[in-house]
Each structure stands twice: as structure tokens, then as C-alpha cells.
Design a protein around this nucleic acid. Structure first.
Length: 710
RNA sequence: GAGCGAUUAGCUCAGAUGGUUAGAGCGCAGCAUUGACAUUGCUGAGGUCAGAGGUUCGACUCCUCUAUCGCUCACCA
């Protein structure tokens, strides 16, 4: 054995829990998460190229889960790697107010605990409660982020609903309004009766259900039978539509019938429209303009009245006698079916598979209703952007490769989504969020960044879709609308690392907003992560109770082990199963590194370097660098694991026991390996770095130079 | 209905532009040992790379089809 003295700390087995505890604080106090401090202290060149990532802001609806941990770990690896590589590296953290999600969560809790609705509390009091909840949730998440070791610049922390971001929102709204891209229109919207608000197409979740398709006539003397799964809406019918080529109904097209349906008088026009599928049901469609998007469109094409509303915002009937009036839609459906049976009007009842539209946040069944709402026009040419539409502005940078989506097959999904995109409904009837910056006084309407001068102005009651403000995130976090230095330096950002689930919700909206506002891309690379599932392949969820809190992992195995387990063997954009065994295995790996260090430090750092081993290590460093540059983080992690355990520990260290003269080589490889490993396991490597007897080392491994130039 | 993906060792998954005997982790079997490390070491078993065709000197990798699973989107009432 040797005479070199082993640091006392290393004589004990590795205990990640005690070792990880204070390191983050030390890093934070050093100020080196802020790139300007790196430059000030000569650790980064003043003219270094910037490398920027903006953290996808987690919703202030609770706590972070393993999905956040995965995305954050990937970002932290990229950030730490680029910082060591000498880039002017910036990672901006922040949180998202998540309007509907947060408000409905707080509402539910208040309802449960106090039996009160938001209307019992009033706007002001509810907002107070929501903000308190959001604050608490924010603090928890920040603590989690720090525990995970994410090296973000807290001096630049942002919130989608803070003052700066709020100014950005109002400024963009005004720009779009002035450009005619934001308009107010009376259209069929997705109304969520449970949440009492509109939602956008992207906030709908379709649920497969069994439904009964009823085939019947409005009345005995009515010539055509129709099929529907929603008989209760038929009291709002204005027409029956058939396909123009359908010989069965040709003689009726153009005629009008007065009839009485379950006590409600109807005037039905028979029309021909090519949208009707002659093979479905009877091939005849009862047209209910106010309660179906398809029917609304048909009504528009045929100049039919569209104002016959029979269902209200509480999904209750507003017409008919005591059988219908005030009844919930399902009760009304039963009442009408019973009436149809009594009148012997039913021809057929069949069970069919149907997709029911529900609201993703409340689970409420969507009731299509015509309402006056604010929309963003995605098909209007924009003069300032070479007459391109927002759709084109979203499509182009991805199509032309200015933005790379990784893995690239998600690009196809992205285009498919754009092709089907309709105008974006941005107004919400909830209180938590950015208030629509529009004021009314009588017939006057005023859209501006600030409230207008003068008496009598009343602000629009609605708030904005939360994705409106998160769409600005890439540049609102950098200070826009102020033309800040940050904006000039760090934008467009280098990469964004979201879960593929929010490709449309968020990534598409950011591209839309950034292209519109700044005429440039928000980021160069979109690195998508998959869904983290439990060991049995199930999604983590509250109801299953299979969620893992990153804090629990940290307490049991150390954050480094959790981070490594998330990265190891996980290709971008693919779902992964995370088992406790895998995390445990990575804790063992951390311990292995600990012991490797103990052994190496027991050897004197003397003698000549063994060139073949040095070359081998340098080649490894090069390979890992190439992997990181190509975003193959899992490849880099596996190479390191493989080399350090199988090659360095099992072979090289063993050889050194049998033969003299390895000292300098072992120290060389260990120092280099700790640096390569640092982005993946920052706590462990920092702890060990502090024990390394190197003459020319920097204060933290975090700010060391990356061992491989490539 | 449309789009997308997956199918590789018992399990969980990697395989960057096609190139000698297909890799890892866990698990399994046998052996060893208090050695830096039992949170260990050594040895080993285990795969017709879903199936069928095609392109090629050569295919896990590219193309076509089939099967199974999964995801996303969707105004068929």
C-alpha cells in the first residue's frame, strides 16, 4: 500500500444524504449560476458564446414529480457541460400561474373544506386564496429544484403572472389587436359547464364511451327520420340536412315543415349539404346550430337562424314545458326518449362507440355553445411578417430546419397539428390570470396596455388562456418589451427541454408568439422528454398513489442517484419506466466512485503518465463530448458508467496493485473522470473534488474546465 | 377515421451515417474473498434483433406488406 494520506471523510462509506445537503447552498452563494459573475472572476471569457436555456415553468399547482426531475436533469447536464466548456451559460428558472389548473384546484379545496363556491367568496377573496396557494406551491417547488441540484440563475427568476410578464402580455395583446389578429366574435366555443369557462380545442380530452344512437322522426307526419345521440338538443333544430346526391330524400330538399317536438314548436328546412354522410344513420342530420360546431357551419352555409339556444351555461334546458325546462341535459334526454317511445316515433336504438369531449382540468363534459369571446386569427396575413399567417409562421422555422425537434419524428406530429388548427379562443371566464386588457364604456371599446383615462370605463371581466402568457416565455423572461441587454445577448435561446405532451400547448405557441413579436425563433433545439412511468409502466398519478417525490429519492438514495437513473438508458422523447432498483443501482455506482477515489488518493501522484492509458481516457472524453453535443445524454452516461466501473476500477486499478508506477496516471484519470461525471452527478463529484490534492484546481468542480476539446 | 411510434437476452432498455463473433443495467448460475469497495470481485448461461418479401458484396439498421401493442389528433350527428 501507499503512504499518501487518505482524507478522513473518505474512510467512511459514502452517505449521499449528508454529503449533498450543503453543497447547493455553497454553489448558490458563490454566485456562479449567474454568467456575469463567471466573467467578472475570469472563469468565462468576456466574449464567450452564450448558451441559454429557459426552464419550462412548472405549474404552481402542487409539487414537482419525476417528469420534472427528468427534464430538469437533462437541462442541468447541458447547462453544467456548457458552463465547463466555457460558454456564457444561463439557465433561467420560473413558474407558471397555470390559470385554470390552479384556480380549479383551489376552488375544489375550498368547496370540500368550507362548502363555499367562488361566488360565495367573490373575485377578490378567491384571488387572495389562490395567490396564497400559488406562493406555497412555488416555495415547495423551488426547494425541490435546489435539492435536485439544478444550477439555475435565481437572480433572474420569473413568474408568468408577475409584473414584468404581465406587461409583456398586455403589450402583445395590444399589438395583436391592432394588427387585427385578435378579434372578438360570437362563435361556437367549448364551454365547460363544470369549470364555468370556455376552453381552447387543445384543452379538450376525448374520452371513448358507449352511447345510444336514437333514430326517430320529429313527428308522425314528418317525412324523414334522423339519427342522434343527443335527442335533447333536437328542440333546437332548424333544419334537416341530407347529402345532395342522396336519392332517398331528393324530393324533400328545399321544403319547410312546421312541427311540434315534445311540446316545442319547430320550423324545419330540408337542405342538402355535402358534409352529410349518407351512410351514417338514416343519412339525414338534424341541424342544431347553437349546440354543435358542425351544425353551426352548416347553418352558416345555408343562411339558417343560429340563435335558437336551448341549453344554458349550466348544461340545463331553457325551453319546453315542465318535462324539459330547467332540466339537466341527461334528464332531458331521458324525458325526450320517453316521449318518443310513447308517441311511437322511435325507429331504432343502437349502441355505438363515441368520443365525448371533456375539459382536461375539470373533467366536465363540454357543451358547445355560441358565445362572445376573444380569438386569435391563425389564418390572417400579417403585413409586418411578409403577409404570412400565424400558421405559416409556426410551420416555417421547423420546416426549414431553423428549429430542430429531437427526436425528429415529432416534427410530423407538429405539422399535423398545425394543419388542423383553428382560431385560438383565448378568453376564459375565470379570475386567476391576466385580465383581458380591454375596457368598455357604453358602445366604446378601448384596448391598451394601461387603463384608459376618464370616467366610466369598465375592464373586460375575462382573463386570458394561460398559454397566452407562457407563449411569451422565451423572451418575456429576458425582459421584453424592454430592449434589454439580456434579450440581445441570450435570445434566441439554445435549447428548450419540455415533455412531448406540451408540444402543441406550449412549444407551438412559443414559436407563434416569438415569430410574430420578434420575427425570430425562440430556440434552436427542442429536446423532448418522454413520460416517466412507474416500474409497471403506469403513469404516475394521484389516484393510483404511485407518485414519487424527488425529495424522497434524495433522502433515500441521493439526488445524484435519482438523476443518473433518469438519464441512463433513456433516449430522447421515449417513455421510460423508473424502478426503485434502478435508482438503487445508481447509488451503488456513486459509492463505487467514492471508493475509487479513496483508493486513488491512497496512491502518490508521482511518476510518469502511462501514455496508452492517457490516450484511452482522452478518447473516452472525446466520445462523451460528442455524445453531449449530439444530445445523446444517455450514451454519455453509459460510456462513463462502463469505463469507470469495468475498465478503470476492475482493470486499471487492479493492474496498479500488481505493478509500480501507476500513481500519476490514476490521478490524471480520476480528475478527468470527475469532471466528465460532474454534469450527471454534481453533488458527488463536487464533494470528491474538494478532497483532490491538486495544485492548480479551481474552487469548485462546477467551474472547472471541461477535459476534452473537440 | 387520420397521423405517429414501438416490437432486440428472464425484466427494463441502448444500438449516431448499413460493415468483422449484437451491447448495458438489473436478474440468474457457479466460484472467490474482509482486499479501495459485500453498495465487492471473477467466470458463465441466455437473443433465428415480431413475421414475410425486397434493395445491397453485406441489413437490427434502408424500402414494402402483415401482425400485435401504445400514443396523439379528429365537427361523422
Amino acid at each position: 500500500m501507499s503512504n499518501a494520506s487518505i482524507p478522513e471523510k473518505l474512510l467512511k462509506p459514502y452517505n449521499p444524504v449528508t454529503e449533498e445537503a450543503d453543497i447547493y447552498k455553497t454553489w448558490e452563494e458563490s454566485g456562479y449560476f449567474t454568467p456575469e459573475n463567471m466573467i467578472r472572476d475570469g472563469l468565462t471569457a468576456p466574449d464567450a458564446k452564450p448558451y441559454t436555456i429557459i426552464l419550462p415553468p412548472p405549474n404552481v399547482t402542487g409539487t414537482l414529480h419525476m417528469g420534472h426531475a427528468l427534464g430538469g436533469t437533462i437541462q442541468d447536464i447541458l447547462i453544467r457541460y456548457h458552463r465547463m466548456k466555457g460558454f456564457r451559460t444561463l439557465w433561467i428558472p420560473g413558474t407558471d400561474h397555470a390559470a385554470i389548473a390552479t384556480q380549479s384546484k383551489v376552488e375544489k379545496e375550498i368547496q370540500k373544506k368550507e362548502g363555499k363556491s367562488r361566488h360565495d367568496l367573490g373575485r377578490e377573496e378567491l384571488l387572495k386564496r389562490v395567490e396564497a396557494f400559488a406562493k406555497e406551491s412555488h416555495d415547495t417547488m423551488v426547494q425541490q429544484i435546489k435539492t435536485l441540484g439544478f444550477s439555475c440563475d435565481w437572480s433572474r427568476e420569473a413568474f408568468t403572472l408577475d409584473e414584468k410578464r404581465s406587461l409583456a402580455v398586455r403589450t402583445v395583446f395590444k399589438m395583436m389587436y391592432d394588427d387585427g389578429l385578435i378579434y372578438r366574435g360570437n362563435r361556437i366555443v367549448n364551454w365547460d359547464p363544470k369549470g364555468q369557462t370556455t376552453i381552447s380545442d387543445d384543452e379538450i380530452v376525448h374520452e371513448a364511451r358507449k352511447a345510444t344512437l336514437y333514430t326517430f322522426k320529429y313527428a308522425k307526419d314528418f317525412p324523414i327520420a334522423i339519427s342522434t345521440t343527443r335527442p335533447e338538443t333536437k328542440v333546437g333544430d332548424v333544419a334537416v340536412a341530407v347529402h345532395p346526391d342522396d336519392a332517398r330524400y331528393k324530393e324533400y330538399v328545399g321544403k319547410e315543415y312546421d312541427t311540434v317536438f315534445c311540446g316545442v314548436p319547430l320550423r324545419i328546412h330540408v337542405i342538402a349539404d355535402k358534409e352529410v354522410d349518407p351512410a351514417f344513420g338514416t343519412g339525414a342530420l338534424g341541424v342544431t346550430p347553437a349546440h354543435s360546431q358542425t351544425d353551426w357551419d352548416i347553418a352558416e352555409r345555408h343562411n339558417l337562424p343560429k340563435d335558437t339556444i336551448v341549453i344554458n351555461e349550466y348544461a340545463k334546458m331553457t325551453v319546453g314545458d315542465e318535462r324539459l325546462m330547467g332540466k339537466k341535459v341527461l334528464e332531458a334526454r331521458e324525458a325526450i326518449v320517453q316521449w318518443l317511445k310513447e308517441e311511437r316515433l322511435i325507429e331504432k336504438e343502437e349502441s355505438i362507440d363515441q368520443n365525448v369531449a371533456t375539459a382536461e382540468r375539470t373533467g366536465g363534459i363540454i357543451e358547445p355553445l355560441p358565445k362572445l369571446q376573444w380569438f386569435i386569427d391563425v389564418n390572417k396575413p400579417i403585413p409586418a411578417r411578409a403577409n404570412k399567417t400565424l400558421k405559416e409562421l409556426m410551420r416555417e422555422p421547423v420546416g426549414e430546419g431553423k428549429i430542430a425537434i429531437v427526436p425528429d419524428f415529432f416534427g410530423k406530429t407538429y405539422f399535423h397539428w398545425i394543419d388542423n388548427l383553428r382560431d385560438w379562443c383565448i378568453s376564459r371566464q375565470i379570475w386567476y390570470g391576466h385580465r383581458v386588457p380591454v375596457w368598455y364604456r357604453g358602445e366604446e371599446l378601448h384596448c391598451d396596455i394601461e387603463a384608459p383615462e376618464g370616467e366610466g370605463w369598465v375592464q373586460d371581466q375575462d382573463s386570458l388562456d394561460t398559454w397566452f402568457s407562457s407563449g411569451l416565455w422565451s423572451f418575456s423572461t429576458l425582459g421584453w418589451p424592454i430592449q434589454s441587454e439580456d434579450l440581445a445577448l441570450y435570445h434566441p435561446t439554445s435549447a428548450i427541454v419540455p415533455a412531448y405532451e406540451i408540444l402543441f400547448h406550449w412549444i407551438a405557441r412559443m414559436i407563434l408568439m416569438t415569430e410574430y413579436v420578434l420575427g425570430t425563433i425562440p430556440f434552436k433545439t427542442v429536446l423532448l422528454t418522454g413520460v416517466v412511468r412507474d416500474g409497471q409502466g403506469r403513469k404516475f398519478s394521484k389516484s393510483l398513489g404511485n407518485g414519487i417525490d424527488p425529495l424522497d429519492i434524495a433522502a433515500k438514495y441521493g439526488s445524484d442517484a435519482g438523476r443518473m437513473a433518469l438519464i441512463f438508458g433513456t433516449a430522447p422523447g421515449t417513455d421510460m419506466k423508473l424502478s426503485e432498483d434502478k435508482i438503487k443501482g445508481m447509488k451503488h455506482f456513486a459509492n463505487k466512485i467514492w471508493n475509487i477515489t479513496r483508493f486513488v488518493l491512497s496512491q502518490e501522484d508521482t511518476g510518469a503518465l502511462k501514455q496508452d492509458l492517457v490516450d484511452e481516457f482522452d478518447a473516452l472524453a472525446k466520445g462523451i463530448t460528442a455524445d453531449l453535443d449530439a444530445l445523446r445524454l444517455h450514451g454519455a452516461a453509459e460510456k462513463l458508467y462502463q469505463y469507470l466501473w469495468t475498465r478503470f476500477a476492475d482493470e486499471i486499478l487492479e493492474a496498479s496493485k500488481k505493478e509500480e508506477g501507476y500513481g500519476a496516471t490514476l490521478h490524471y484519470i480520476l480528475a478527468g473522470s470527475l469532471k466528465l461525471l460532474h454534469p450527471f452527478m454534481p453533488f458527488l463529484t463536487e464533494t470528491l473534488w474538494q478532497l483532490m490534492p491538486l495544485s492548480n484546481k479551481r474552487q469548485y468542480i462546477m467551474i472547472e474546465q471541461w477535459p476534452a476539446a473537440n
